[in-house]
Amino acid sequence: MTDTQIGSFIRDCVVFEDDTENGLDFDTFYGLYISWCVLGRKIPIPDSAFKTALELEGVKPIKENGRRIYPGMSMVGPAARDYVVNSVPVWSETATDIPVSEIRQQAVASIA
């Protein structure tokens, strides 16, 4: 059986936890994939093809409040850190009492 780009991505970036109520919504899952592609210098596939490729790998979402959620999944690894760091809004330090650098550290620590 040949390895697929999506199969490699899933092995590198996702852990499955049956006992968790959490999961990844489609936008987060695709954003994680984009981070993985950028870090690995791979050409990403469009989001519609990504959805189909996940299904071919046996990864199917559930619908929750009109959103596609992939239950029991959590992000791990360098692509997860990259995604989180680059997804945290850049607030000015005057808008919050917490320095931006500390917010980013907390975000990265939450996935480590």
Rank of each mutant, 00 (worst) to 15 (best):
D47S: 15
I34Q: 11
A80N: 03
Y33R: 04
S74L: 10
T96A: 14
F50K: 03
N86V: 00
Y83E: 03
A80E: 00
T2C: 08
S48Q: 13
T94W: 10
E17G: 02
E17I: 10
S48V: 13
S92K: 15
V88K: 02
V108A: 14
G77F: 06
G58C: 02
F16A: 04
T52D: 09
S74Y: 06
D97M: 14
I69K: 08
T28L: 07
G31F: 05
A95V: 12
D97T: 15
A112R: 09
D3G: 12
S74H: 10
S92D: 15
E57D: 07
Q106D: 04
I69G: 01
E64S: 14
T52L: 11
K60T: 12
V59A: 05
P89I: 11
I69M: 12
N22Y: 11
I6Y: 01
G66K: 08
P71R: 02
P46C: 06
R81K: 11
I45H: 00
F9G: 02
G7K: 03
V90Q: 12
E64D: 13
A107H: 01
P89D: 11
A112T: 08
P46S: 09
L56M: 12
G58T: 03
L56Y: 07
M73K: 09
P61G: 04
D97Q: 11
N86S: 06
V38P: 00
C37I: 06
S87R: 10
Q105R: 15
E21F: 07
V85N: 08
D12Y: 07
R67W: 08
Y33D: 02
F50C: 01
R68P: 00
R41L: 06
S48C: 09
V108W: 02
K60A: 02
S35F: 02
T28Q: 14
G31K: 03
R11T: 05
V100H: 15
I45K: 07
L24N: 01
I45C: 07
I43P: 00
T52A: 11
V59G: 00
Y70C: 01
K60C: 09
S48W: 11
P78T: 12
G72I: 01
P99S: 04
L39G: 04
L56K: 15
P99Y: 06
E55F: 08
E17N: 13
N86E: 07
V90C: 08
I43R: 14
V15T: 10
E64R: 14
S110N: 05
N65G: 04
P61V: 03
V59D: 00
V76C: 05
D18R: 13
N86P: 00
D19R: 12
I10W: 04
A53D: 02
T28C: 13
R41W: 03
D25M: 08
E57C: 06
T2L: 14
A53E: 06
G7Y: 02
S110Q: 05
K42F: 09
S110D: 03
V108R: 09
E21C: 05
D25W: 08
S35K: 02
V85W: 01
A49R: 10
M1I: 10
I10V: 10
I45Y: 00
Q5L: 15
E93T: 09
Y33V: 03
D19E: 11
L54M: 14
S48D: 15
P61A: 07
F16I: 07
D12C: 12
Q105I: 06
T2N: 13
V15C: 04
G23Y: 03
T4C: 07
G23W: 00
I69Y: 04
D25K: 08
Q105P: 00
C37D: 04
M73E: 06
